[in-house]
Amino acid sequence: MNGFPRGRTAIVGSATYGIGKAPGLSSMDIAVNASVSALRDANLTPDDVDALYICLPDNFLSGLTFAEYLGIQPKITENNRTGGSAFLTHLASACLALDAGLCDTALIAYGSNQLSGVGKLVTPAGADPYEGPYRPRLPVSAYALAAARHMHDYGTTPEQLAEVAVSARQWANLNPEAYMQGYLSIDDVLQARRVSSPLGVRDCCLVTDGGAAIVVTRADRAKDHASTPVHVLGAAAATFHYNISQMPDLTVTAASESGARAFAQAGYGPEDIDVVELYDAFTINPILFMEDLGFCPKGEGGRYFEGGRTAPGGEMPVNTNGGGLSCVHPGMYGLFTIVEAVRQLAGQADGRQVAGARLALSHGSGGFLSSQVTAILGTEETL
């Protein structure tokens, strides 16, 4: 007995809003617009919602603000912050609350006006007394350390990192919503301005506005709200550290634990997954995560991305919306991995649809490779 209510909850609505630039709107405005669209997708209204989960970059009491903005009085208001992984943490919590009968309809939302409001990548870190004196360019320098160590230990090359960015761009070119489109080559990535060695600007996520939302309910109600409910088969979290200087091994993330537990809950393994949606804040991330989640041995992640394996037409589709590298990255990307997984499993991904997708993995990362959360989602036939 693993304690997780396998398949007993399902995602019945999802939406994005304001991807790219949404001038004149606050982060909450963007989150609420995405929420209303997700509820409409599920044939629901705000009045039907009795559990709210939200985490905004510029509002530390956003759970309360969210309830007030929607004009509702929810039974549960959750504002847990673990960085970009928060929304997968919210999903796990919502599934437990729904299964326990504490609520009937959970809304999970995010919004950010980072591009139009601030215009640059922002991190609340930097004041750490041990790292601060070295003036790291956070968050990128933290990930550059991990990339450099992986290169040292396993021979990973800049070209292999570039393959991650090129694969993401090829998917983005199939997605009308993606903010960054156009041809991108390995040489383009390698020749781009360096930001924190060995990472260049094309190894780094976008800075955009954007919001996303999903609606979750119990499986026995799901068919009333979605023609193709997406069931939550497993969801698990793990944390090894916060500051990058305290990471036990720069090449091993807590995804090695969260993934194993999520797969055990779901009753499936990496070999069963049809589509993978990863938090790709930097090109080293998918390399580390594919290793730690069991899709390839440790040290083989760079080679795994060679030859278009994860690009359109490849054997393992990864980040089919274009990811944080080419689709959208409004400060925190985690909820977008769930939305894209839902679209793929519901057959709603249009020109980038992965044929026959039944099982999807969604993975969020928070902090500096710190908080890792993995969810396994499936269609009804996977129950």
Rank of each mutant, 00 (worst) to 15 (best):
Tyr154Leu: 06
Tyr154Trp: 13
Tyr154Ala: 08
Tyr154Gln: 04
Tyr154Phe: 15
Tyr154Met: 05
Tyr154Ile: 08
Gly155Asn: 07
Gly155Ala: 12
Gly155Cys: 12
Gly155Val: 12
Gly155Phe: 06
Thr156Ser: 02
Thr156Lys: 00
Thr156Asp: 02
Thr156Tyr: 00
Thr157His: 01
Thr157Glu: 01
Thr157Val: 06
Thr157Trp: 03
Thr157Ala: 05
Pro158Asn: 12
Pro158Arg: 07
Pro158Ala: 00
Pro158Ser: 04
Glu159His: 09
Glu159Trp: 08
Gln160Ile: 05
Gln160Asp: 07
Gln160Gly: 04
Gln160Val: 06
Leu161Lys: 01
Leu161Gln: 01
Ala162Gln: 02
Glu163Phe: 09
Glu163Thr: 07
Glu163Leu: 04
Glu163Arg: 06
Glu163Trp: 02
Val164Asp: 05
Val164Trp: 03
Val164Asn: 01
Val164Met: 04
Ala165Arg: 04
Ala165Gly: 09
Ala165Trp: 05
Ala165His: 00
Ala165Met: 02
Ala165Val: 05
Val166Asn: 06
Val166Ile: 15
Val166Met: 08
Ser167Arg: 06
Ser167Ile: 00
Ala168Glu: 08
Ala168Ile: 01
Ala168Gln: 03
Ala168Arg: 02
Ala168Lys: 00
Ala168Asp: 13
Arg169His: 07
Arg169Trp: 06
Arg169Asp: 05
Arg169Ile: 03
Arg169Cys: 02
Gln170Thr: 00
Gln170Tyr: 14
Trp171Ala: 01
Trp171Gly: 01
Trp171Asp: 00
Ala172Lys: 07
Ala172Trp: 07
Ala172Thr: 11
Asn173Cys: 13
Asn173Arg: 06
Asn173Trp: 12
Leu174Ser: 12
Leu174Lys: 14
Leu174Asp: 10
Leu174Asn: 11
Asn175Arg: 04
Asn175Gln: 14
Asn175Pro: 10
Asn175His: 13
Asn175Glu: 13
Pro176Phe: 09
Pro176Asn: 13
Glu177Ala: 15
Glu177Cys: 08
Glu177Thr: 14
Glu177Asp: 15
Ala178Pro: 04
Ala178Ser: 13
Tyr179Cys: 10
Tyr179Trp: 15
Tyr179Lys: 06
Met180Leu: 15
Met180Gly: 00
Met180Arg: 15
Gln181Ala: 07
Gln181Trp: 09
Gly182Pro: 09
Leu184Ala: 02
Leu184Pro: 04
Leu184Asp: 01
Leu184Gln: 04
Leu184Val: 15
Leu184Gly: 01
Ser185Asn: 05
Ser185Pro: 07
Ser185Asp: 13
Ile186Cys: 03
Ile186Asp: 01
Ile186Lys: 09
Asp187Asn: 14
Asp187Cys: 00
Asp188Asn: 14
Asp188Pro: 06
Asp188Val: 13
Asp188Lys: 02
Asp188Arg: 00
Val189Leu: 03
Val189Cys: 12
Val189Ala: 00
Val189Glu: 08
Val189Pro: 08
Val189Thr: 12
Leu190Met: 12
Gln191Arg: 14
Gln191Val: 11
Gln191Leu: 13
